[in-house]
Nucleic acid binder design. Sequence first.
DNA 1: GACCAACGTTGGTTCGGCCAACATATCAGG
DNA 2: CCTGATATGTTGGCCGAACCAACGTTGGTC
Lengths: 152, 152
Amino acid sequence: MESAATGPQAPARLRTTPSWLLTQTAAHASRLVAEGLGALDARGYHYRLLAALEESGPASQAELGRRCGIDRSDVVAVLNELAAKDLVRRSPDPADRRRNVVTLTDAGGRELRRMGETLDRVQDTLLAPLSTAERDQLTRLLTRLLDHHTGR
Amino acid sequence: MESAATGPQAPARLRTTPSWLLTQTAAHASRLVAEGLGALDARGYHYRLLAALEESGPASQAELGRRCGIDRSDVVAVLNELAAKDLVRRSPDPADRRRNVVTLTDAGGRELRRMGETLDRVQDTLLAPLSTAERDQLTRLLTRLLDHHTGR
DNA sequence: GACCAACGTTGGTTCGGCCAACATATCAGG
DNA sequence: CCTGATATGTTGGCCGAACCAACGTTGGTC
């Protein structure tokens, strides 16, 4: 819960380096997200997969991984955990026996919603010092960066 | 070197969530930094400590950690590596025998400079799609967020 | 002198991100 | 039809950054 503050004052070299600002703020963001989702016994990966399932419907594991930017191998582990809690159902795809079709269960939908609510609160504490306009600005800038480095 | 692209299109839920945008762009930033510094056989922690040393002069390990936002225990390990390359000298503080005084060597200064140059290039590829004004905007917004979550 | 705080150090943990390898299954070309 | 390339799920590992608990030593204070 501690702020892990950068004590006195970080070196100017760092404070003016965008990559450092990014990774530092991201670290704070991650901590807040972990705290929030941790209360629901979940992590970022769980939310991402559930969100993708709700938004685009059932999909294979590989497809899910591609959509969320999560490695195939990590998808396996997270789906195991989600399936163990019945938030997700994994069934062999009759049309392509290599694939598993992953489906969001009702409980999964409910859990996703709960996660979404806590994440909304997290965004608010994360962006607390910024006005609405500034939040939009930040979002736009980051989106452009991300799109660029993602191959559009 | 791969872009690890978020395949087709990440769920809108994610793409509009600032904490996700932050952690994703930060991941790209970290990758670029790791690539750049990796060529010099260094990591982010090494640069941070060297930069702090150059900027504020010799200091104890605890002090360095506080300045850089690096945990005491991690400082130990990184200083071991830096000292092994003679980029840093670690000597007991005669005034306080609990402390080690860490000093930047000439070689350390040179290496820091080299790191700084490659990091400058990294910033440029990281921020490629943004104009100078936009880069400043981003820097200001992130700085405000960081200051806020750092206890000012 | 007794206590508590700070320091350096060791040895963990977590989370996100990645890679290599393998068996199985699909698909396209010869 | 068969053969080879490709996709999928899965296992088991690795790394960097961030953290935490504990211990022995040293410093300052009451």
